[in-house]
């Protein structure tokens, strides 16, 4: 089963996304901030990461850089309300493979995941 790491400081969203993805047959693990995300990436080697940006301790862009630094083949999709052009560019330059602006549609997220982990 494809393992996906969801990173978001809102428990509510982690649960919502987790249910959605489990329903689609994915194995889901969760982290509540960027620092935990980096740890969990190292411990669990997920196939893909869904990463929020605005989080305490360590934001998603910083975590993205750490994860990509650790694993150059890491597949990270940003999932955030912070949809400014400069932010999208920074994420892509730092190695994000896709960028989804919240609020998200189920379809959009699944399609983005399937494109990367066929």
């Amino acid at each position: 089963m494809t393992k996906i790491l969801i990173v978001d400081d809102a428990e509510f969203l982690r649960v919502r996304i987790s249910k959605m993805l489990s329903g689609d047959g994915f194995d889901v693990i969760q982290a509540e901030n960027g620092a935990r995300a980096v740890e969990m990436y190292k411990e669990n080697s997920p196939d893909l990461v869904l990463m929020d940006i605005t989080m305490p301790e360590m934001d998603g862009l910083t975590a993205l850089k750490h994860i990509r630094g650790y694993d150059a083949s890491a597949k990270v999709i940003m999932l955030t309300a912070l949809g400014q052009e400069s932010v999208v560019l920074e994420a892509i330059k730092s190695g994000a493979r896709d960028f989804i602006v919240k609020p998200f549609e189920h379809e959009r997220v699944i399609n983005a995941i399937r494109k990367l982990v066929a």
Binding site: D9, A10, E11, F12, A81, Q84, S86, V87, K102, P103
Partner: peptide, 29 residues
């Protein structure tokens, strides 16, 4: 956390708009 996310999405959308209108850098906490 559900209410926090309301704050996050509502506030961030305001900030996105601000950034787009002014061309300046603004990020939410």
């Amino acid at each position: 956390s559900a209410l926090a996310e309301v704050g996050n999405q509502t506030g961030t959308f305001f900030i996105n708009s601000l950034s787009s209108l002014t061309g300046l850098d603004v990020r939410p906490s």
